[in-house]
Simulated assay, not measured.
Amino acid sequence: MSSRNELRRARADAFASALRDGINARGVTLAWLQENLRLRGNTVSMATLSYWRSGARRPEGAQSMAALGDIESLLGLTAGALTGLLGSTKRTGPLGPNQFPIDEAALEQMVKDAFAALGTPYPDTSREVTTHSVTDVDADGNVSHCITRSVVQSTVGTVTAIPFLELSPGVSTPAPVLSAVSGGRISARYSHPSGEVHGALFELEAPLTAPGTAVIEWSVGFPPGYPPTQETGHAVARQCRELMVWTRFHPDALPDWVEEKIETPTGIRLAPLSLAGRTSVHQVRRAFGPGAIELRWGYGERADQPG
């Protein structure tokens, strides 16, 4: 029977071989891979990438696992094609506090109701290690679709499903269409009577035992009758190694003004942003959370808005 070290070596060899095959099939260099990882906020040294490719070292820790999710994407590999070859890392990484990201007690109670209805404990025992959320804005200037890819990690015990919620504080809406794209399926849905909280339970493809990670992807669509929306964002209850919110505007609906809203337990910060000749805005925060990153936009003269 193989020893633990032999099993670890076999996994490292399989990972290195898959990484080499992916790089060769894509026809790219390690320098190209490093630069594109940097653009996504994942700083990995050339030496580390070389070690991974040769099998001299294997990725360890949440930060490296987050980078692997981007490597899979950059090389055109299926989610988990590389991470699935490693087995569990022994490190969870720094977790930080688990805290409701928005300072609204009534809204938090609605979220607790949603968790209870979905049959999952509150607060959630998983965390988002890295998350990229991409929102498309239609020709009328309103949110039309959002897709999110996340490296999630179990922080304690075993996680089989993760709840995802859409919040519209103070605004009652019909239920948006939450769909699983990859990494699992939607096993339950819930809408709060207020219409301000809607959610779905994302059942993972396989149970996730701490400190293991998985890559998942889900989308949000908006049905007829949904209020026109000119803001988007993403909130996390624990510190996220990297959170990116990318908002892509229709070329016929470029806004006249754009504003960033960052909400954390220490307060709210508003700041004007500029498209600067582009058709999109990306907001990136590292070691962010608990908190929320939002983007607001509009047309015509900027009207005063409460924070």
Rank of each mutant, 00 (worst) to 15 (best):
D136T: 12
T173W: 02
S219D: 14
Y190M: 11
E203T: 12
E108R: 07
D103Y: 02
G212E: 15
D138S: 06
I162M: 14
G184V: 08
K90Y: 05
R91E: 15
V137W: 04
T213N: 14
Y122H: 11
T232I: 04
E203N: 02
P193T: 07
P174E: 13
D136K: 11
Q109G: 00
P94W: 12
T173E: 10
S191L: 09
G183K: 01
T213L: 06
S182T: 13
T209E: 15
T131V: 13
S179D: 14
G170K: 04
N98G: 10
E217D: 13
P228N: 10
P121A: 11
T120L: 08
L95C: 07
V111E: 11
Q153R: 03
F202V: 12
P227D: 11
G183I: 04
N142L: 11
E217F: 00
N98A: 14
E166T: 08
I186R: 01
V177P: 01
P121I: 06
T120D: 09
S150P: 02
P176K: 07
C146N: 10
E205N: 14
Q109E: 12
G96N: 09
V215D: 12
L208W: 03
G157E: 10
E166C: 04
T158P: 04
V129A: 10
G141P: 02
Q99N: 01
T209K: 12
A210M: 10
T160C: 12
S154M: 07
I162P: 02
H145F: 15
E196G: 03
P228T: 07
A206N: 09
T89D: 15
D124I: 01
A188L: 06
S179H: 03
R127K: 14
